[in-house]
Amino acid sequence: MTHHTARLDHVVLWVADPAAAAGFYERTLGLEPLRLAEFTAGEVAFPSVRLNEETILDLAPHTLAPRMPALPGSAGHPVNHICLALPSEAFDALRARLAEHAVPMTDIGHDSFGARGKAPRTFYFSDPDGNVVEARHYD
Protein backbone atom coordinates (compact mmCIF):
# COMPACT_ATOMS: atom_id res chain seq x y z
CA MET A 1 0.00 0.00 0.00
CA THR A 2 1.26 3.49 -0.87
CA HIS A 3 1.40 5.94 2.03
CA HIS A 4 0.76 9.54 1.08
CA THR A 5 1.78 12.51 3.16
CA ALA A 6 -1.18 14.60 1.95
CA ARG A 7 -3.78 15.52 4.55
CA LEU A 8 -7.19 17.11 4.08
CA ASP A 9 -6.72 20.78 5.00
CA HIS A 10 -10.19 22.18 4.31
CA VAL A 11 -13.44 21.76 2.42
CA VAL A 12 -15.34 24.84 1.22
CA LEU A 13 -19.12 24.60 1.51
CA TRP A 14 -21.39 27.11 -0.26
CA VAL A 15 -23.94 28.50 2.20
CA ALA A 16 -26.60 31.22 2.19
CA ASP A 17 -25.81 32.54 5.68
CA PRO A 18 -22.32 31.70 6.97
CA ALA A 19 -23.08 32.73 10.57
CA ALA A 20 -26.19 30.52 10.65
CA ALA A 21 -24.23 27.65 9.05
CA ALA A 22 -21.50 28.00 11.71
CA GLY A 23 -24.22 27.85 14.38
CA PHE A 24 -25.64 24.67 12.84
CA TYR A 25 -22.26 22.90 12.80
CA GLU A 26 -21.50 24.07 16.34
CA ARG A 27 -24.90 22.89 17.69
CA THR A 28 -25.02 19.53 15.91
CA LEU A 29 -21.39 18.45 15.55
CA GLY A 30 -19.83 20.53 18.31
CA LEU A 31 -17.42 22.15 15.81
CA GLU A 32 -15.67 25.29 17.00
CA PRO A 33 -16.46 28.38 14.88
CA LEU A 34 -13.39 30.27 13.60
CA ARG A 35 -13.24 33.93 12.48
CA LEU A 36 -16.97 34.37 13.14
CA ALA A 37 -16.61 37.76 14.86
CA GLU A 38 -14.29 38.94 12.07
CA PHE A 39 -16.80 37.79 9.43
CA THR A 40 -19.69 39.50 11.23
CA ALA A 41 -17.58 42.69 11.41
CA GLY A 42 -16.92 42.49 7.65
CA GLU A 43 -13.16 41.96 8.12
CA VAL A 44 -12.96 38.54 6.44
CA ALA A 45 -14.92 37.06 3.53
CA PHE A 46 -16.12 33.93 5.35
CA PRO A 47 -15.91 32.07 8.68
CA SER A 48 -14.93 28.44 9.20
CA VAL A 49 -15.53 25.65 11.70
CA ARG A 50 -12.78 23.37 13.03
CA LEU A 51 -13.28 19.66 12.30
CA ASN A 52 -10.02 18.52 13.98
CA GLU A 53 -6.43 19.70 14.55
CA GLU A 54 -5.67 19.68 10.85
CA THR A 55 -8.97 20.14 9.00
CA ILE A 56 -11.54 22.94 8.80
CA LEU A 57 -14.75 23.55 6.87
CA ASP A 58 -14.92 27.00 5.23
CA LEU A 59 -18.47 28.40 5.06
CA ALA A 60 -18.45 30.54 1.92
CA PRO A 61 -21.45 32.74 1.10
CA HIS A 62 -22.87 32.39 -2.42
CA THR A 63 -22.17 36.13 -2.85
CA LEU A 64 -18.43 35.33 -2.84
CA ALA A 65 -18.66 33.43 -6.16
CA PRO A 66 -18.33 36.46 -8.48
CA ARG A 67 -15.10 37.40 -6.67
CA MET A 68 -13.56 34.01 -7.55
CA PRO A 69 -12.81 34.50 -11.27
CA ALA A 70 -10.48 31.49 -11.40
CA LEU A 71 -13.53 29.27 -10.84
CA PRO A 72 -16.34 30.60 -13.03
CA GLY A 73 -19.71 29.09 -12.21
CA SER A 74 -18.37 27.34 -9.14
CA ALA A 75 -21.02 28.59 -6.69
CA GLY A 76 -23.23 25.67 -5.83
CA HIS A 77 -21.04 23.28 -7.85
CA PRO A 78 -22.34 19.89 -6.77
CA VAL A 79 -20.38 17.90 -4.23
CA ASN A 80 -22.19 14.65 -3.54
CA HIS A 81 -21.39 14.62 0.19
CA ILE A 82 -18.65 14.89 2.78
CA CYS A 83 -18.12 12.06 5.26
CA LEU A 84 -17.07 12.44 8.88
CA ALA A 85 -15.75 9.48 10.87
CA LEU A 86 -16.56 9.63 14.58
CA PRO A 87 -15.99 7.34 17.57
CA SER A 88 -19.00 5.09 18.23
CA GLU A 89 -20.21 7.13 21.26
CA ALA A 90 -19.93 10.42 19.33
CA PHE A 91 -21.85 8.84 16.43
CA ASP A 92 -24.73 7.97 18.80
CA ALA A 93 -24.59 11.43 20.42
CA LEU A 94 -24.72 13.12 16.99
CA ARG A 95 -27.87 11.19 16.02
CA ALA A 96 -29.47 12.23 19.31
CA ARG A 97 -28.55 15.93 18.79
CA LEU A 98 -29.82 15.91 15.21
CA ALA A 99 -33.12 14.40 16.39
CA GLU A 100 -33.30 17.01 19.17
CA HIS A 101 -32.94 19.77 16.54
CA ALA A 102 -35.44 18.01 14.20
CA VAL A 103 -32.81 17.58 11.47
CA PRO A 104 -33.98 14.87 9.03
CA MET A 105 -31.59 11.93 8.66
CA THR A 106 -31.50 8.58 6.94
CA ASP A 107 -31.82 5.23 8.66
CA ILE A 108 -28.56 3.60 9.70
CA GLY A 109 -26.73 1.73 6.96
CA HIS A 110 -24.19 -1.03 7.58
CA ASP A 111 -20.79 -2.10 6.22
CA SER A 112 -20.22 0.92 3.99
CA PHE A 113 -16.71 1.09 2.50
CA GLY A 114 -14.51 4.10 3.26
CA ALA A 115 -10.96 5.27 3.90
CA ARG A 116 -10.45 2.84 6.80
CA GLY A 117 -12.31 -0.17 5.39
CA LYS A 118 -15.89 -1.10 6.21
CA ALA A 119 -17.82 1.04 8.69
CA PRO A 120 -20.33 -0.95 10.74
CA ARG A 121 -22.77 2.00 10.91
CA THR A 122 -23.35 5.07 8.76
CA PHE A 123 -26.11 7.63 8.08
CA TYR A 124 -26.68 10.85 6.16
CA PHE A 125 -28.16 14.25 6.98
CA SER A 126 -28.25 17.67 5.31
CA ASP A 127 -27.18 21.03 6.67
CA PRO A 128 -29.64 23.95 6.26
CA ASP A 129 -28.02 24.78 2.87
CA GLY A 130 -28.54 21.29 1.46
CA ASN A 131 -24.92 20.16 1.85
CA VAL A 132 -25.09 16.43 2.55
CA VAL A 133 -23.01 15.02 5.40
CA GLU A 134 -22.42 11.34 6.05
CA ALA A 135 -21.52 10.31 9.59
CA ARG A 136 -19.89 6.93 10.28
CA HIS A 137 -17.81 5.08 12.80
CA TYR A 138 -15.28 2.31 12.48
CA ASP A 139 -14.65 -0.45 15.02
Rank of each mutant, 00 (worst) to 15 (best):
T2R: 10
T2H: 10
H3F: 09
H3D: 10
H3K: 12
H4P: 02
H4W: 00
T5H: 11
R7D: 02
H10L: 11
H10W: 14
H10K: 15
V15C: 09
A16M: 08
A16N: 11
A19V: 08
A21T: 04
G23E: 09
F24A: 07
Y25S: 01
Y25T: 01
E26C: 06
T28Q: 13
L29Y: 09
G30P: 03
A37Q: 15
A37W: 09
A37N: 14
T40N: 09
T40G: 05
T40A: 12
A41E: 04
E43L: 12
A45V: 01
A45F: 00
P47H: 09
S48P: 00
R50Q: 08
L51S: 05
E53W: 02
I56P: 00
I56D: 00
I56H: 00
L59T: 01
L59A: 05
A60S: 11
A60W: 03
A60K: 05
P61E: 06
H62I: 03
L64A: 05
L64C: 02
P66M: 10
R67P: 00
P69N: 08
L71V: 01
L71I: 00
L71M: 05
G73Q: 04
S74D: 06
A75E: 11
G76A: 07
G76W: 08
G76I: 03
H77Q: 08
N80A: 03
H81L: 00
I82E: 02
C83N: 13
L84G: 13
P87L: 10
D92R: 11
D92H: 12
A93I: 02
A93R: 12
A96V: 04
A99Y: 02
E100L: 05
A102Q: 10
V103K: 06
T106Y: 09
D107G: 15
H110G: 10
H110W: 10
G114P: 09
G114W: 11
A115Y: 08
A115T: 09
R116Y: 14
A119F: 13
A119D: 12
R121Y: 11
T122V: 05
T122S: 10
F123C: 13
Y124P: 05
Y124E: 04
F125R: 06
D127F: 07
N131H: 15
V132R: 15
V133E: 05
E134Y: 12
R136P: 02
